[in-house]
Design a binder for these strands. Structure first.
Length: 928
RNA sequence: GGGGGCAUAGCUCAGUUGGUUAGAGCGCAUGGAUCACAACCAUGAGGUCACAGGUUCGAAUCCUGUUGUCCCCACCA
């Protein structure tokens, strides 16, 4: 696909992002081909729910992963980023049911299970497709040939196999236990799916009269409607108040049901009245007490949150309506002793927000203790690490406290539990394939369990089910364990923890070595983006307006590990402007390169990257010491720029290794904008326009080389623009070529060809670099002086530079730069000030003193102020450093390197102070 | 009830093992249509690093406490 030879004047991401993505995908470069000679790098994508569309949180999550994947791929690793989507059992089921109700006016039960599932699969087709399209717009370099869905055939096999294995080990069991029930969703939930919220509530204190006519006992409760299922009153055995009552019986008020007063360690004498009503079927603590004492466990609330027959006349009434009526009735009858307003933590369904009702129910559970142990160990032994580290504490704490995991759900959309009930003998057969007959009695009439599994049961297998487990695939052997899991802190408990223990159990190894945890994307005011607030921002709209690269750069720049970020349009504009800057710098380079139809562009596209190693293993050319015999011919600014690039590349690599992606992005930004655009391009223009063709070619060679390195370093963050520009540059290390040909599917594309710049910058000082730094300093101070004196930028000035012989020599070599960038007509060099006219403006830098006869523009007042300010600062420094050096503690204990640096600094400051003092005296005289 | 994060320029945030003058972007001020870019360039102003102690030759950085703020966990007597 050949494109126009020229870059458009303005950066317009819409002109190329889609085209480039299509070409990338077509090239097959996202597909990780197993290569034993390469080190693998694998990330499995946290699969977005198919409930809707991608939001900003996904965009952040996926950009982080894409940056890491592209970077590692450029480093020559066999990089796999495995994409997919999640069936999200309960969430999707609710959405689909809602839709059916809205469009057809039918409930899911009216539709029936089979028909409902058909609709759900259709939903998956539509929304799953939308989501993967969005991922492409973001620029995700994921391996689409390995795309998976948590409910596809392979995942289903993995789920069945895993279930059976745990069952056979006794780690999955079926039991009649107290579970969290959501009456609105009509299903059980795991502990993790219950959210706790503090709500205002009431403690009602009721008297339970003695069965023998005695006073009885007063207990507090926030849920009077559960009284119908009370089976005992418990008091602490050491509670002197109630010692005599233990063993006696009381009546549930207004009923004739007698319940015993028992002694148990559970009641806290400090809380309430110290006596607790025990309702095993509706409270987890009470359930335990009930088990300890062998109590009955009747239920008075059913799965619809309505009262059962146990509540007698309230039967069928909603639990909260019953509460109200019952309290009124008890109060009327004189059993209500007092009430107390209190803040009570209430459990709510994380999906629908309904108040959770603890119910006694037949469900499937995973026994957690044995599974949690190795997961705890893996973190403690460092086989699993968290970035940032503090999340390890959270992870460990949860695992230490975890209770058995209720995995069955009374839903339709999900993995059906691989268990079959035999009505003949009442037995249960658990098998990965449908059994023909009951293994216990041989009956052939088997009924598969109606329930499906918690959605997280299948997500827990994601890192290995996607690689082919339970088959022994090559992928599994090569990529497992994966390198890093990138995810938000909000699903550590739901997901990360469960992947870890599942991986350890099944694969005998952690599913990933690192967990990189990020936070939430908030709106500009710092609020959580939510549907109810309507403050969500659609990533697609942002891409439409600013381009995917700007979005990605914004997300990466704003995020530090584990922290939330605010999403602001100013940041987007900044990122977009940065892209435009790079675009125009590239345009500048390209327009100076020999044209595409030119006969000889050899010197422009000559050497390989300054610092790279290509994937085919070619050796790198260290920056600062370029290949060929042109070393001596490179100008100071070339050497300076190459060195800066190599230094930046080394730092950026280190930042990437430490997951400091925002710092890395910041450094590329600086390298590109400050060093390359603001200084290097300006410095190099003299040679480009100077008429010396050899100089021009050399300058272009370095311009191109550094631009390539910038494109490479930036590519993980802004893949589209870097690829687009890359395509216009002459092929790297290839035959002599010209600007203006491009084809991103070719093997020369950045994605396929470019290697991450790796070579360390040279050690030690470099005279050329130092000369440029001195020149920059002088240029800056002259510009400052000029601005202060309000001298027209176009007006050329004459300057006298006074400095040490060494610095004079250095600055003399940069004369062209000084003249051009500071707007000077002529420069005179002097080693002392004698003989200088006094009618002059001046500036003082570390390297030199500059005097500029500005004629009528001299503003001694401004200069006086500036010099004074400068002087005050230097004097401060002198005082502080002198004090430091006079302190024997410092000179004795600080490292010699630090002490020497301070000595040198002091000398420099003192010299500066002397220069300033002299000049101030002159200016003062002028003013008076 | 338990645990954790954060507090740095007007705003949003960096500041990697303690060591030059604490940085960036935006915003602000001044000047500028210069032939890569006004989505730009140049120059500048702006911070007692929440507060109080402590460790250290040296603290934005480590420790303790205080205040403010956000979050997570927790079986609703």
């Amino acid at each position: 696909m050949k494109q126009d030879a020229k870059l458009a004047k303005n950066y317009d991401p819409k002109a190329f992002e889609e085209r480039i993505y299509a070409a990338w995908e077509k090239s097959g470069a996202f597909h990780a081909v197993i290569d034993r000679a390469k080190k693998p790098f694998a990330i499995v994508m946290p699969p977005p729910n198919i409930t809707g569309q991608l939001h900003m949180g996904h965009a952040l999550d996926q950009t982080l992963q894409d940056v890491l994947t592209r970077w590692r791929r450029m480093q020559g690793r066999c990089a796999l980023w495995l994409p997919g989507t999640d069936h999200a059992s309960i969430a999707t089921e609710m959405k689909v049911a809602e839709e059916i109700l809205a469009t057809e006016g039918k409930s899911k039960h009216e539709l029936g299970r089979a028909e409902f599932l058909k609709r759900a699969w259709e939903w998956k087709r539509v929304y799953g497709g939308k989501i993967t399209e969005q991922m492409r717009k973001l620029g995700n370099s994921c391996d689409w040939e390995r795309e998976r869905f948590t409910m596809d055939e392979g995942c289903n096999r993995a789920v069945r196999e895993y279930f059976v294995r745990l069952y056979e080990k006794g780690l999955i069991y079926r039991g009649n236990r107290l579970i969290n029930w959501c009456p609105r969703c009509g299903t059980s939930l795991s502990d993790a799916e219950v959210e706790h919220e503090d709500r205002k509530g009431t403690y009602w204190y009721f008297r339970y009269p003695g069965a023998d006519g005695g006073e009885g006992i007063v207990v507090a409760t926030s849920r009077p409607e559960t009284m119908f299922a009370d089976v005992a009153i418990a008091v602490h055995p050491d509670d002197a108040r109630y010692g005599a009552l233990v063993g006696t019986q009381v009546l549930i008020p207004l009923t004739d049901r007698r319940i015993p007063i028992i002694a148990d360690a559970y009641p806290d004498p400090e809380k309430g009245t110290g006596a607790v009503k025990i309702t095993p079927a509706h409270d987890p603590n009470d359930f335990e007490v009930g088990e300890r004492h062998g109590l009955d466990m009747p239920s008075c609330i059913d799965e619809n949150a309505a009262m059962t027959g146990l509540a007698e006349k309230y039967m069928g009434m909603d639990r909260f309506a019953c509460r109200k009526a019952w309290v009124a009735e008890l109060a009327e009858a004189g059993f209500l002793v007092k009430t107390e307003e209190k803040v009570i933590p209430i459990g709510e369904c994380y999906r629908c927000g309904a108040v959770i009702e603890p119910l006694l129910s037949d469900q499937w559970f995973v026994r957690m203790e044995e599974l949690a142990r190795p997961a705890i160990l893996a973190a403690k032994e460092g086989r699993l690490t968290h970035v940032p580290e503090r999340f390890e504490k959270i992870y460990l704490h949860w695992l230490a406290e975890v209770r058995d995991w209720c995995i069955s759900r009374q839903l339709w959309w999900g993995h059906r539990i691989p268990a079959w009930h035999c009505d003949a003998c009442g037995g249960i057969a658990v098998a990965s394939e449908t059994p023909r007959a009951c293994p216990d009695c041989g009956a052939t009439e088997l009924r598969q369990d109606e329930d499906v599994l918690d959605t997280w049961f299948s997500s827990a297998l994601w890192p290995f089910s996607t690689l082919g487990w339970p088959e022994n695939t090559e992928e599994l052997a090569y990529f497992y364990p994966t390198d890093v899991l990138v995810t938000g802190y909000d699903i550590i408990f739901f997901w990360v923890v469960r992947m870890v223990f599942s991986g350890l159990e099944i694969m005998g190894d952690v599913p990933f070595e690192r967990v990189y945890v990020h936070g939430l994307v908030r709106d500009a005011e710092g609020r959580k983006m939510s549907k109810s607030l309507g403050n969500g921002i659609d990533p697609l709209e942002i891409i439409e307006r600013y381009g995917a690269d700007a979005l990605r750069f914004t997300l990466i720049s704003g995020v530090s590990a584990g922290g939330d970020m605010r999403f602001q349009t100013e940041k987007l504009e900044g990122a977009r402007n940065f892209a435009n800057k790079l675009w125009n710098a590239s345009r500048f380079v390209l327009m100076n390169l020999p044209a595409a139809d030119g006969e000889d562009g050899a010197t422009a596209g000559d050497s390989a990257s300054a610092t790279g190693t290509r994937p085919d293993g070619d050796s790198a050319t260290p920056a600062g010491t370029p290949a060929g015999g042109e070393d001596g011919a490179l100008a100071d600014e070339d050497l300076w720029m190459l060195r800066r690039t190599a230094e930046a590349a080394a730092e950026i690599t280190r930042n990437m290794e430490n997951f400091e992606l925002s710092v890395a992005a910041q450094k590329i930004y600086e390298l590109t904008w400050s060093d390359y655009c603001d200084w290097y391009i300006e410095l190099v223009k003299e040679r480009l326009y100077g008429g010396d063709e050899a100089e021009k070619a050399r300058a272009l060679s370095v311009l191109t080389r550094v631009l390539r390195d910038i494109l490479k370093l930036l590519h993980p963050f802004m893949p589209f623009i870097t690829e687009e520009i890359w395509g216009f540059l002459p092929p790297e290390g290839g035959a002599p070529a010209q600007a203006g040909t491009r084809d991103e599917t070719s093997p020369e594309s950045l994605l396929i060809r470019a290697a991450w710049p790796e070579t360390a910058p040279p050690d030690g000082p470099d005279p050329a670099t130092e000369r440029i730094e001195k020149a920059k300093e002088v240029i800056r101070s002259i510009r400052n002086l000029r601005a202060e004196a309000a001298a027209a930028p176009s007006k050329l000035l004459n300057a006298v530079i006074v400095a040490s012989p060494e610095n004079l020599e250095a600055l003399r070599r940069e004369e062209g730069h000084l003249k051009k960038l500071a707007g000077l007509a002529a420069i005179e060099y002097a080693s002392d000030k004698s003989g200088l006219p006094e009618e002059t403006a001046s500036a003082v830098t570390g390297a030199a003193e500059i005097f500029i006869p500005l004629d009528e523009l001299i503003d001694y007042k401004a200069e006086f102020e500036r010099l004074h300010k400068e002087n005050a600062r230097v004097a401060d420094d002198v005082a502080r450093i002198s004090a430091k050096l006079a302190n024997p503690g410092f000179t004795g204990k600080a490292p010699a390197k630090v002490v020497n640096a301070e000595r040198e600094r002091l000398a420099a400051c003192e010299e500066m102070a002397a220069k300033l003092a002299a000049r101030i005296a002159v200016v003062e005289k002028k003013l008076s």
